[in-house]
Every structure is written in C-alpha cells, then in structure tokens.
Amino acid sequence: MGHVSVGMVDVTSPLPRPSTMGRGNAEVRARLLMVEDDERIRLALGLALADEGCDVVEAASGEEALHLLATTEVDVVLLDLMLPGIDGLEVCRRLRGQGELPIIIVSARTDTSDVIAGLEAGADDYVTKPLMASELAARIRALLRRRHPASTQPRPVIRVGEVEIYPAEEAVLRGGAPVHLTRTEFGLLMELAMAEGRVVTREELLRRVWGYDYFGDTRLLDVHIRRLRRKVERDPDNPTCVLTVRGRGYKAGGLA
C-alpha cells in the first residue's frame, strides 16, 4: 500500500522529475526538520535528502522537535506520526497553532482514516513509507514554491463574496478581519479565485497547488477544501465562496 501516499507516485521506479525541478538553481537549499524516532531511517533519509539538496535537522521525538523549533528556523517539517512521547498528530496540531510552517507527514500508516486525521491536524501533505528521498524532495520544492505563485497578479485585490484576497501581500480578509491561511490553503483559494468562477477540476487543483503530478488520491484535496472552508466561510456546511461542483471539481462563488 505504499502507493497510498497521497500524491500517488510510483515510488519504486525512477521518478518522473517534476518539470520545475533543476530549474531555478538560485533556489536556496531547503532546510528541513525531520522528526523520526527510527535512527536508521533518519540516517538513510538524511543522506538521501542531502543528495537531493536539502539541509536536514533531525529530532528523535516530538518534544525534541518542538524544542528545536523554538530556536531553529526551518522551511519544512517532516513528521512521523508514531513517536515516543507526544504523538505526531499532537505535534502537528501544536505547530499549526503556532503558525503556517509547512508540514509533511511521513508515516507507515496507510489507512484512509489516518491520512484524513493527519491532514485535519493541519499537515500540508501526507506521504507513506517506504518513500524515496527524491519524491520527498519534489514535494518539498512544490510546497515551498507555493510561497511565490508563478504568475504575478495584475489585480491588487480579488474579492470572493465577503473574502478579500491580496495576492501581493499574501493576505486574506473576511469581512475586514484577517484570516490566517496556510500556504497550501492560500494557494488553493488563489487558484479558485483566478479561475473567475469557472470550474477547476480536482486534478487541476492538485497539480497546480501541490505542484506535482498527483496520482489521483484526492483525500488531500478534500481535507484542504474542508479546512479552507472552515476559515473563509461563515457557515462551512453551506459554503458560498468555495463551491463544490459534483463529480467535476470546485469553483469560486460570489466573485466581484
């Protein structure tokens, strides 16, 4: 079930390099915090990720990770779920409570319920072991790219219902009050807003927001849409901004 990895990539064969990889050599080396209790995995994945151009900081437990993050700046957290002490989900929730630091869950748990729980806890992505460093690196790059959407926005502000999006500032207001979105949630909202009311299919959203040739598994998308709605909708059960188009995808409602 390794292929349960949310971005369902055939991890066992040489990877199709994402088109953006290798481009933009100016990219600084990504700095990662790997939270993993299995020392051998830490070592092997650390070596392989270093080969992929990442600097890896390691933590063997949730407590250690939280402690480290108080003093160390990293770009992405790789988080195992089964940890001694504070469990991975709890670490994820605490980190999400502190800010928008990108989190990728790396777990041996493959059940749908685990994937959903991980994403609901605030993770940006969920991959299952055994995974290859190359795949992980591609996802990390995609995640970091979300900070700078590819196309520059001509408009300073986009309105979706009562939600105002300021692309340049990466800020979102609802009814004048600021809404804190993660990078992934912001990317998702931008994609829908920029489609100007047209339907965006699930595959398109996955490819554009997660920036990777995703292999179907849309639980990732479903959970993120749910999270986004909780933040931007007045009544998440009756959405007016992020609308579902059954069997096809999503679209933005109430565009101004």
């Binding site: 995995i41 092997a44 290859m132 460093a133 190359s134």
Partner: peptide
C-alpha cells in the same frame, strides 16, 4: 515499511 525506507534511501545514495 520502516526498514524498507532505510534500505531504499540508502540504495538511492
């Protein structure tokens, strides 16, 4: 899955 992760990544190196 755990040792496989180690093996596969060590193999990649």
């Amino acid at each position: 899955r755990s040792p496989l992760t180690t093996m596969a990544n060590a193999a990649a190196v």
